[in-house]
Nucleic acid binder design. Structure first.
Length: 596
RNA sequence: GGCCCCGUAGUUCAAUGGAUAGAAUAGAAGUUUCCUAAACUUUAGAUACAAGUUCGAUUCUUGUCGGGGCUACCA
């Protein structure tokens, strides 16, 4: 907050002078004055009334008087109960505005010379991306941007799950029922084509299980003995042995999936610096198990399986190597952590993964700590809640998923419909119009998913969830488009914002002051968002700023202003808002149009 | 059963332990000779329940009730 440091010092000085006692920094709490009271910033006096030996009211009065006398920035004060509301002069705000207006990078922090890795997306190559992946990707991409803005050197990575039983399932179904179908021959996008066979596997498999149960087997036996399952296991073994035919099929099918994913990522507007594939990392980590045994971090059971004992930390025993010497997920994740550190040497590492893996990651981090890994302290699981549908949980095998490609297409169509209804884009070329629909549709979708705190699970109702009015992406985009129109007009009329004009302004309209105060908060918001790994902080800030500007827009006229200095100030001021909106939305991965 | 997360207006979301709990949407009523009405203004409506800590609790603690997740030698 503006002046907070000076104020804290002055409060300490004043307290000593008036009451003769020392205050600790943590007793001095400032907050923003609530709208219904007069003032800009508020000191809560309760924490030190005891020391003052006066009533809260009197204490606040005395401190207020002292501050007003000793700080020219404070032009007035009032006391409500134990709250001392301080009014900061318009000139101070204007000066602050000048500073932030001049600074292209206002809000962004200087480089920290520290590397952080953000892993996100992490899809399986057996089905297309769905709504849950959208939340993950938008979150990961945005958190990476926010950390960059906070001064970190960020490496974005994607760990693709491209092997394993589930991958073999779609391979097997394709081999049996695919009849050489290809994305080209069928006109189906690669990842969707593979997804089709993953579903097909499940259908056929269920039939087999049902038949076996009818023959008198138990459910459990049937699931293990169904021919398709036996063949899948066989195929996995062949793949691991490197059987050329199996590997060729795997490569062909994964290739199709990657083509599909690339297209989806492009539409989403996310990217990565590095792609790790599990087929290249799944054997890692065994040496770390050996190391752990030597360091007595792990112990071996009689059957030869290896475990970590985390009971003392409130967790359970966890298997890290099977009795037959093969690895489990934990083994491979330990190995991959080492590999990543070797590759990039990041002191911090963020895993953007759903909250169903909370337990897995708390175990992983603890094990790495026990193994003495230097990077273990900097690991963080950015755990986010599931996206539920009105009908309940999404299940890909049962076809109750909201597909990412479909949803985005749907959004573009809705945006187009809305835009055409309003009829404000005469003169747009076909291409410009299409681009606008994408900007708006994607803006609405991204904003919808990012405005909610990550850890909360959220409900998505395809019919109602995504609006274009109110607390939405398009609301902010609209505000930007309006400002752009003002700046165009200013340019036409030959008004350009000048420093001299800023010097000459003495007073601010109430709505102008509110906006300047918000602009001034930007760096603090980036800090908060970065430290909490929470794009929702930025999303809500951008909304507040746009909303406040819209109030100004309705209350104050720009081009009818008689005082040309005030007019020029309002142009500069609008420009600063537009710039800040672009920065904030940029952090969320949302574009802002010039017209809409 | 054990462990973890979440319960705020009809609905979707906010609120470093601080004032009369903010928005949006849906509802009601207004605003366009003037910079984009995808906007603005007004209005009504909520902390699941019960104790405790505190000058002060939506926030911290405990319990109850509701929702979700994890609890595989699966990935």
């Amino acid at each position: 907050m503006l002046l907070e440091k000076q104020l804290t010092e002055k409060v300490k000085d004043g307290f000593k002078e008036i009451f003769g006692g020392e205050l600790q920094d943590n007793q001095i709490q400032f907050q923003k004055t609530r709208k219904e009271f007069e003032g800009d910033c508020t000191l809560v006096v309760f924490p030190f009334v005891k020391q003052a030996k006066k009533s809260p009211q009197q204490t606040a009065e005395l401190v207020g008087q002292y501050l007003q006398e000793h700080m020219p920035e404070i032009t007035a004060f009032n006391v409500v109960k134990g709250f001392l509301n301080l009014v900061i002069g318009d000139k101070v705000w204007l000066k602050q505005f000048k500073t932030l207006y001049r600074d292209e990078h206002f809000g962004f922090f200087p480089a920290k010379d520290q590397k952080v890795m953000v892993e996100y997306s992490s899809p399986n190559t057996n089905k297309p991306l769905h709504l849950g992946h959208l939340r993950n990707n938008f979150l990961g991409f945005s958190v990476a941007n926010i950390l960059k803005a906070y001064g970190y050197d960020v490496v974005k990575v994607n760990l693709v799950n491209d092997r394993g039983v589930h991958i073999c399932k779609s391979m097997l179904a394709y081999q049996k029922f695919g009849q050489e179908e290809t994305p080209k021959s069928s006109g189906i996008k690669g990842d969707h084509l593979i997804g089709k066979y993953y579903v097909r596997f499940d259908q056929e498999y269920k039939k087999e299980v049902k038949a076996l149960v009818a023959e008198g087997k138990t459910e459990e036996e049937a699931k293990k003995q169904a021919p398709l399952m036996v063949e899948t296991q066989e195929m996995l073994k062949n793949w691991e042995k490197g059987d050329p035919e199996t590997v060729a099929l795997w490569e062909k099918m994964n290739g199709w999936v990657y083509e599909g994913f690339d297209e989806t990522y492009r539409t989403m507007g996310v990217d990565f610096d590095k792609i790790y594939k599990e087929s290249e990392t799944y054997l890692l980590g065994k040496d770390m198990v050996e190391e752990g045994l030597q360091k007595e971090v792990f112990y071996k059971k009689e059957d030869g399986s290896v475990w970590g004992d985390l009971v003392s930390e409130g967790l359970d025993n966890k298997l890290v190597l099977r009795a037959d010497g093969t690895s489990v997920y934990m083994t491979q994740d330990m190995g991959t952590a080492d590999l990543k550190y070797k590759d990039y040497g990041c002191e911090k590492s963020i895993y953007v993964v759903g909250n169903e893996q909370d337990y897995h990651f708390s175990v992983l981090f603890k094990l790495l700590k026990r193994l003495g890994r230097p990077y273990a302290e900097g690991m963080y699981h950015l755990s986010y809640g599931m996206v539920d549908l009105p009908t309940g949980k999404m299940k890909s095998r049962e076809g109750t998923v909201v597909d990412a490609d479909d949803l985005m297409k749907e959004m573009f169509k809705t945006a187009e419909l809305h835009t055409k209804e309003l009829g404000k884009i005469e003169g747009f070329s076909q291409e410009e119009a299409q681009k606008l629909y994408k900007t708006l549709g994607l803006g609405a979708l991204k904003y919808f998913l990012l405005k909610v705190e990550p850890k909360k699970r959220m409900l998505f109702d395809p019919k109602e969830s995504i609006e274009f009015q109110g607390h939405t992406g398009p609301f902010i985009q609209y505000t930007h488009a309006r400002i752009s129109a003002i700046l165009r007009k200013a340019h036409q009329l030959g008004y350009d914002p000048r420093e001299e004009s800023l010097e000459k302004i003495e007073h601010l309209h109430a709505s102008e002051k509110s906006v300047v105060r918000l602009l001034n908060d930007f760096p603090e918001k980036i800090k908060e968002a970065a430290e909490g790994y929470s794009p929702s902080v930025i999303a809500n800030y951008a909304y507040d700023l746009a909303k406040e500007y819209n109030s100004f827009y309705a209350a104050v006229s720009i081009f009818n202003e008689e005082n040309k200095d005030a007019l020029r100030f309002r142009i500069a001021f609008s420009e600063a808002v537009a710039k800040t909106l672009r920065k904030t939305m940029g952090l969320l991965g949302i574009d802002l149009p010039e017209r809409m």
